[in-house]
Computed example of a mutant assay.
Amino acid sequence: MGQIAFWSHRHGQAGNSANMIAVATLIGMEYVTRTLISHTHWAMSSLESTFLKGKAAKVNDVEYSNVGIDALERLARSDRLSPNVVKDYADTILRDRLELLRGTAKPNEEMFSSIHDVIQSIFGAAKGYYNLSLIDVSSGTRNALTNAVIATSDVVVVNLNQNIAVLEEFFEQEQPAFLKEKRHVIVLGQYDRYSKYSVANIKRMYKPKAPIFTVPHCTGFMDALNDKSVVEFFLRNKNIGGNHDNHYFMTELRKLAKGIFEAAGVDTKIYSEQGA
């Protein structure tokens, strides 16, 4: 189906990782498809700490090339990388539904940044096995890895929030060229539906051409991130009724998931358990 890059124009503002964790877990539970999640950050991201819990053991300098994205880099450089091999280096989150490709364990950022010349081969191989790849990339447009991943992505998810400075910077300044060329959707993280800067008002103010979705603020989800119990949170909330505090969060997240599939040109009825 495609490769989806989760990106923001400003560092540390929009909750890229949290938004991706939320929608990836929901997709894994509600869509009958093989989904891979990964990231291109040098330091270990919240993906590992959230999903691997205590299993995310430290890797020493000798072993790093046998784990996650570093292992696939080694295989890519030796022309031994193939789609079926990618799965061998991924951690299972939801059996046959959701897997995590760990980020780098290299001892310094300079060593990791050299991966940019094979990163497209790595995620290209992943496309050959997984139906959907969600990749959390660094913010801005000056990172070589970010640019390499976005160049081969089918959809870019632009992460914003309701901070007026963030909104003005994104909508009123010249946007990156790739957003003029790539299919993209906008998602507002930590969304407050009672704010003056609602989706309706943001659309009225800036008239964006891309669809806008939200990941509402949800105390239960934020606690689950801290407690490393995200999968358990979604299992508990999958079938909650309209009167439950978390119903709005789940409803909006389902809209985002569907919007990502549609942006990728996929009929959600084919893969959704609910036929949505």
Results as ranks from 00 to 15, higher is better:
Trp7Ser: 00
Tyr130Ile: 03
Val231Gln: 01
Val137His: 04
Glu48His: 07
Asp88Ser: 13
Asn60Gly: 10
Phe112Ala: 01
Thr92Met: 11
Val158Ile: 13
Leu81Val: 03
Gly103Lys: 04
Asp267His: 08
Gln13Lys: 13
Asn60Phe: 10
Val149Tyr: 00
Ala14Ser: 11
Lys53Phe: 07
Ile164Trp: 01
Ala224Gln: 04
Val23Leu: 08
Lys87Cys: 11
His116Arg: 12
Gln190Arg: 09
Ser114Gln: 06
Ala22Met: 01
Ala210Gly: 05
Ser133Trp: 13
Ala257His: 03
Glu110Tyr: 04
Ile150Phe: 02
Asn243Arg: 14
Leu47Asn: 13
Phe123Leu: 12
Asp267Pro: 11
Val86Cys: 08
Ala76Cys: 03
Ser153Glu: 02
Thr104Gln: 07
Arg74Cys: 12
Glu73Ile: 00
Lys209Pro: 00
Val156Ser: 00
Lys255Asn: 08
Arg183Ser: 13
Ile93Asp: 04
Pro216Ala: 11
Ala200Val: 15
Glu172Phe: 00
Ile4Trp: 02
Tyr271Val: 12
Val166Thr: 15
Ser272Leu: 07
Arg183Glu: 14
Leu101Thr: 05
Arg80Met: 14
Tyr271Trp: 06
Met111Lys: 09
Ser133Met: 06
Leu47Tyr: 13
Lys269Ala: 15
Ala71Trp: 02
Glu63His: 15
Ala144Asp: 02
Phe112Asp: 05
Ile240Ala: 01
Phe123Ala: 01
Thr104Pro: 03
Ile21Tyr: 03
Gly220Trp: 01
Ala56Ile: 08
Pro176Ala: 06
Arg10Ala: 15
Tyr271Lys: 08
Glu48Leu: 09
Asp192Arg: 02
Ala14Phe: 00
Glu99Ala: 15
Val185Ser: 02
Ala22Lys: 07
Val266His: 02
Leu132Tyr: 12
Lys207Gln: 15
Ile186Cys: 14
Phe221Cys: 06
Ile240Ser: 08
Ser113Ile: 07
His247Asp: 09
Tyr129Trp: 12
Leu167Cys: 03
Ile119His: 12
Asp245Asn: 00
Asn163Glu: 11
Gln13Asn: 08
Asn243Val: 03
Ile270Thr: 15
Asp154Met: 11
Asp192Gly: 10
Glu172Leu: 11
Lys53Gly: 10
Asn159Gln: 05
Lys207Phe: 05
Ile240Lys: 01
Leu167Gly: 07
Asn60Arg: 10
Tyr194Ile: 07
Asn108Ala: 05
Lys182Leu: 08
Asp267Leu: 09
Val118Cys: 05
Asn226Lys: 10
Tyr248Gly: 08
Gln3Arg: 12
Asp70Met: 09
Cys218His: 03
Ala257Met: 04
Gly124Lys: 00
Gly275His: 06
Leu75Arg: 10
Ser198Gly: 07
Phe51His: 13
Tyr194Ala: 12
Phe249Gly: 02
Leu52Asn: 06
Asp227His: 09
Tyr194Met: 10
Ser121Ala: 11
Met44Arg: 12
Ser195Arg: 01
Asn60Ala: 09
